[in-house]
């Protein structure tokens, strides 16, 4: 399938391995990416704190750029983009007069947003568009014995009605379903649906790092080998800041945190290096040793 692809800022900034991993994984899943390279930041909720209309207009511009492509839908790889954009879309789609007002501003860009764009995170695309059955059939290296703790990020699971969670779309259980489809073991721990703390890292650092440290610690206590997240901002607090979080919560952590495309890529047979896993702050040593030994075993059997 062809998608209008919005990578977001952080996947090309402080977590470049995420954008790179998705570029490797997409062809294996038959996803053709039309990158929205003229689009701007979603605002991450912060621009909306400054001016709601500004955030809505910037995202309407991104939606309009996506609507100009022949992609079946728009795809993002960041929980925060998903949530911030869904919030803007809710207002844009709810009120025709408001949409006209925003479109009048966009006219200067030669763009126009038409109500009702479909914008899905890679996680939703995996489950709803590709399907778990097909995903299972593509697995070359099942993640046997890998114990994975899901970490969603707030913006992709709340509020449930805005992000479309209902009986038919249990989007707050998709990470568990994907881990299972890839052959891994799902770790149930307290922090999976909580906040990583990143949004307040410059405002209340202790609270922010306590959140990150506590969730990582809870996952370790539940015997996780690693966490997986669809959100690069969560990745910043859980991986990049993990050494600082250790100091705040007063315990050693050292738990690798994988981006969702990296976990998928490992199961589809890509090497940790191809997936940029050497760029993490917490070395995903357990994960890499594990996958290499499985590769070695498979080669020996052949």
């Amino acid at each position: 399938m062809k998608v209008a692809y919005w990578p977001g800022c952080v996947s090309r900034g402080f977590t470049p391995e995420l954008h790179g991993a998705l570029a490797q994984v997409a062809p294996l899943l038959d996803i053709e990416l039309i990158e929205l390279d003229r689009a701007s930041c979603c605002g991450a909720g912060v621009i909306a704190e400054h001016s709601q209309e500004l955030a809505d207009t910037l995202n309407a511009r991104t939606f309009a750029l996506a609507q100009q492509t022949d992609g079946e839908l728009m795809m993002n790889i960041c929980s925060t983009c998903q949530g911030a954009q869904s919030e803007c879309q809710e207002r844009l789609d709810a009120n025709a007069a408001y949409r006209d007002r925003v479109n009048a501003t966009l006219a200067g860009s030669g763009l126009r947003y038409e109500q009702g764009i479909v914008n899905k995170n890679f996680l939703w695309v995996l489950v709803e568009e590709i399907g778990l059955k097909k995903l299972r059939s593509l697995v070359k290296r099942p993640l046997e014995n890998l114990r994975v703790g899901p970490f969603y990020g707030c913006y992709i699971i709340r509020p449930a009605n805005r992000v479309g969670i209902d009986g038919e779309h249990p989007r707050d259980r998709y990470l568990e379903q994907v881990i299972d489809a890839l052959g891994g073991t799902v770790i149930d721990y307290a922090g999976s649906h909580k906040c990583c703390g990143f949004p307040i890292i410059t405002m209340n650092k202790t609270a922010s790092l306590t959140q990150a440290g506590r969730h990582v610690g809870d996952a370790i206590d539940a015997d996780a080998d690693c966490l997986v997240t669809p959100c690069p901002l969560c990745h910043l607090n859980l991986d990049l800041q993990q050494p600082l979080a250790e100091g705040v919560v007063g315990r050693e952590l050292g738990l690798p945190v994988l981006h969702l495309p990296q976990l998928v890529g490992l199961a589809l047979g890509l090497s940790p290096k191809q997936l940029g896993m050497s760029r993490h702050i917490v070395k995903p040593r357990a994960v890499i040793d594990w996958s290499e030994s499985v590769v070695a075993a498979a080669a020996a059997a052949a």
Binding site: E72, Q85, V118, K120, E129, G131, K133, G164
Partner: peptide, 29 residues
Amino acid sequence: LNLYVTGTDEESPPTRGAGEPAAAREGAE
């Protein structure tokens, strides 16, 4: 725009970012 005050236009779709694309998703089991 405060949706609590203005409500939603009658013809508005439910949160479509959440919904399915227009094409039926056959084969996605």
